[in-house]
């Protein structure tokens, strides 16, 4: 009996994903939104590794690596945008103030 079964992995990943989702929805500060996105990505990565362990396939960890690359890019670009907005003299990091796409 493994210490941490695949069912438990899925359960944990679901909870983690929902927590991250709630974070994205509720926080207005863009830094917190990015962190919440990272939590969601981690939840997805956890499922991949769990599935890889369940079926003895290295592909799970390959996917984990790709998610890692994706997260790195996402964070880098996101933080660059935040820095850029800050450098342009925007007073807050409030995501709701950027609504130029308003219909």
């Amino acid at each position: 009996m493994p210490v941490f079964s695949f069912n438990d992995t899925l359960l944990l990943a679901t909870v983690l994903f929902s927590v991250g989702l709630a974070g994205v929805l509720v926080r207005r500060n863009m830094i917190f939104m990015l962190m919440s996105l990272d939590i969601m990505l981690n939840a997805a990565a956890l499922v991949f590794v769990g599935a890889g362990a369940r079926w003895h396939d290295a592909a799970g960890q390959v996917m984990f690596l790709l998610i890692l690359a994706l997260a790195a890019v996402e964070t880098a670009v996101g933080l660059a945008i935040i820095l850029c907005l800050h450098a342009r003299g925007r007073p807050t990091l409030d995501a709701d103030t950027g609504n130029l796409l308003q219909g």
């Binding site: 994205v24 929805l25 207005r28 939104m33 995501a95 609504n99 796409l101 219909g103």
Partner: peptide, 11 residues
């Protein structure tokens, strides 16, 4: 609905 706010879109 189309209010340009990222959080709403995410929601």
């Amino acid at each position: 609905i189309q209010n340009g706010r990222v959080r709403w879109y995410a929601a």
